[in-house]
Write a protein that binds this DNA or RNA. Sequence first.
RNA 1: CGCGGGGUAGAGCAUUGGUAGCUCGUCAGGCUCAUAACCUGAAGGCAGCCGGUUCGAUUCCGGCCUCCGCAACCA
Length: 482
Amino acid sequence: MKPFYITTTLPYVNSDPHFGFAVEIIRADIIARWKRELGHEVFFNTGTDEHGIKIYRKATEQGIDPQTYVDGFSKQFRVLRELLDLSWNNFVRTTDPHHIAAAEKFWTIVNERGYIYKKFYSIKYCVGCELEKTDSELVDGKCPIHPTYELELINEENYFFKASAFQAQLLELYKRPLVLPDSRLGEVRAFVERGVEDFSISRLASKMPWGVPVPNDPAQVMYVWFDALVSYLSAIGWPENTTSFEKWWPAVQYCGKDNLRQQSAMWQSMLAAAGLPFSEKIIINGFIVSDGKKMSKSIGNVISPADVVAEFGVDAVRYYVARRVSPFEDSDVTMDKIRDAFNADLANGLGNLVSRTIKMAATYGVTVSREHWAEVEMNLKASSAYAEYAGHLDSYNIQLASDVIWNDITKLDIFIQEKKPFIKVKTDPEGAKADLVYVLDALWGIAVYLRPIMPSTSEKIAESLRTMSLAEGLFPRKDVKK
RNA sequence: CGCGGGGUAGAGCAUUGGUAGCUCGUCAGGCUCAUAACCUGAAGGCAGCCGGUUCGAUUCCGGCCUCCGCAACCA
């Protein structure tokens, strides 16, 4: 079976992990677990992007050296593994010596193939923002944020990447569904059709030393994007471990919509420039807003993954991401919405169904052998419902896959209501038991379906079915105090 | 004419070229195995506005209005 390589974006470590990244990495985790379930060997990569001007400035402001600064943040991202029950098997840091060597090698190859050149160019620089501004960002020739400042013109010599050479190849590439959803593929295609310009891929080390040195030119360091994207290669052992590279590449890449151009245009042309195969698939997530607004410390509507886990538990967060956050569009997330979903779908829905079923089965003396569950699972996997669920996961629509599960939950509640085993047991105990076995089998199916999405809940349900007992409710209701 | 997303029941969201669905909330009823849970039913929408294509559009096309991202803590 074909090995499967999936990676998240490497988050930039200038702040704590935010909910949007939790969404991305939970999705990647669900897909990774799903592929393992199917029997694929899986390489699931994540990590941290640690170079660049913003990090350099922040570290300098705090009077610590950049490496110490990023070490601290990188740890904060590593703890997500336990926090969100993630199963990544590689965590790459762009300050790893191996990655730095890979980035240098990548640069050298692209340079040798003739796609890097040096030129002077002038940039417009806003002192207020301390950032370069492109013409498209300006309003009436001024920075819209600091209209009282005059823009400074700075002449600087940098290395450029000959992206313009790859327009035709990119348009050819977009004939296959490289990018999900389709609307994003159309967007990047339109962007490339408008014309691709060469872009700067280095910075003067004298102004910004925190980056990978440009080979044979100590005066320049690589622009952070150029080095960060190469991490998708260095993570799997490129360049020296060709066996590993050929085994895993190309990758499925998850990213946010702000990364569309970088990952599906810029990165693809970089790969072509290095003579490497294009990515397999790029999945574009929407953004998370809270109460209709971008999460912001000053507004106070920031929801941290850790807060949600503390309040509702890991699997509730994974559930919310899977089923209540739109797979591709922007979504609004608030603690109240999470609480509503928790109560409606997990407490009243899944948790209560497991509870009522196990209780009846235990009370009425239903017993089921281990062989029985194996058989149930085999039948399930041959069913059309399972095919539907699998189809959704194969096309990265975790939401529709989860809908299959919750449709089952509703059907089972109705089934119990209609068959009334709790009445039937008084006159026809065998009939009541048979009804319960039907529900128990379906619950086993739900546990199977939940394996990639809510692994620990899946295991708890399976354990309850094996022992026909339930120590405590899976998801006790969270009531709002009024 | 910079790029992109949205405007569908009180709220949040799905969906579809042919009587518009779900969750929460509200009202009424049922059940009692269960986490005051579960089931049934009801009320509540001219699917932002205007025009076009069509036998038929909420769905396709054009225009308009309007909200929101593309700077900060950015996936």
